[in-house]
Simulated scan of single mutants.
Amino acid sequence: MADTLAISPGTRDALSGWLDHIRALDGAAEKTVAAYRDDVTRFLAFIGVHQGGAQGRAGLARVGLSDMRAWMAHERGRGLGPRSLARALSAVKSFYRWLSDRDGFDASAVLSTRSPKFTKKLPRPISAEAAGEVIATAELQARDGWIGARDAAVITLLYGCGLRISEALGLKGKDAPLAEVLRITGKGGKERLVPVLPAARAAVETYLALCPHPHENDAPLFRGARGGALNPRLVQQAMERARLQLGLPATATPHAMRHSFATHLLNAGGDLRAIQELLGHASLSTTQAYTAVDTARLMDVYEASHPRARG
């Protein structure tokens, strides 16, 4: 990594101000903020050295396309892959949009820099039958009956409600018995309403009836063996054991259950926008990737919903 001493105090202040901005106004999660900070810090340190030493914010305004190419070549040289470099470039562009608005300079050289191409990995959902088998197998494989019921209840929420594993494990005792609709706080503090299937409510009730730990409103709903918050790794391990027994691919992970929820809804005729809301996605393009939508299905949705297509 380039020498961070090449970053001037004024530039550090600018970086700090931008991070405060995305925390406050964009609602970015802290992990996202930390990743942005690391990416932009490396960029600023490189530019400082590349320009011959710390030159302050005025030096940032002089960054041109050749500087951007040099930085990207440097990042590739230290082993950064196309996907990670694209993420870093996105963070740098976001920082420059904010900084150029405040300092009044033209950031087009940075903002026009092309992102490296990479192949996006499409999620691989599993079949509805396999999803049911995973839940049943996870319940039977645990050494204790209540732990098996717990694992089955968590996985049922992932598949039946499309929750992220962090969202399922974020539920508290006061959320039970589960209502017909849950208010879930997802990424970036965004709230959404999620319907709860009777099967999911029943799975949670079965787990609570067997759980040896006291039901407390402010305690985690899903407990570890000693009564603390359930570690997500234990859910992942339950899925691993189940998929190995069932002969499912390594892509059959807890998050794949969320993919499957969306895909099966879409295949049953669900609306993309409605599924986007249920998943808590900020953009429809993310939902399209999660649901493995094919061109024919997209055209069906287009023709059924677009005013011009309807004539």
Rank of each mutant, 00 (worst) to 15 (best):
D38V: 12
S285L: 11
G269I: 00
A142P: 01
P307Q: 07
K120M: 13
D38Q: 08
A109I: 08
W18D: 09
S108L: 14
G280I: 12
L25F: 15
A109H: 11
D218W: 10
F95V: 05
K93I: 08
L80M: 15
F261M: 06
S90P: 03
A309S: 04
T295L: 15
D144P: 13
E180D: 12
G10C: 06
M299D: 02
D13K: 14
R102C: 02
K174S: 15
P220G: 11
A70L: 06
H281G: 04
E216Y: 10
L163V: 05
F95I: 09
I22T: 14
S166H: 02
A238V: 06
A54C: 10
T119F: 14
Q51N: 04
Q245S: 15
L163H: 04
G10W: 03
T287N: 06
T4C: 13
T287D: 03
D38W: 07
L89W: 10
G59F: 05
S112I: 07
I135Y: 07
P125G: 03
A203V: 07
L182D: 04
V49G: 09
R192S: 02
T295W: 14
A58R: 14
L171V: 06
P214C: 08
A138P: 01
A242C: 07
F46P: 09
A29L: 07
A142F: 00
S84E: 09
G64A: 09
R201T: 13
G224Y: 10
G224Q: 10
S166R: 05
M257C: 08
L284H: 07
E216M: 09
G53H: 08
L272K: 11
G160H: 09
G48A: 02
A262E: 04
D300I: 02
A28C: 15
L65M: 14
D175R: 02
T263L: 04
L85N: 03
P214N: 07
E205I: 03
T251S: 08
H306C: 09
L111P: 14
V235S: 01
V235T: 01
L25A: 15
L248N: 00
Y290P: 02
G132E: 01
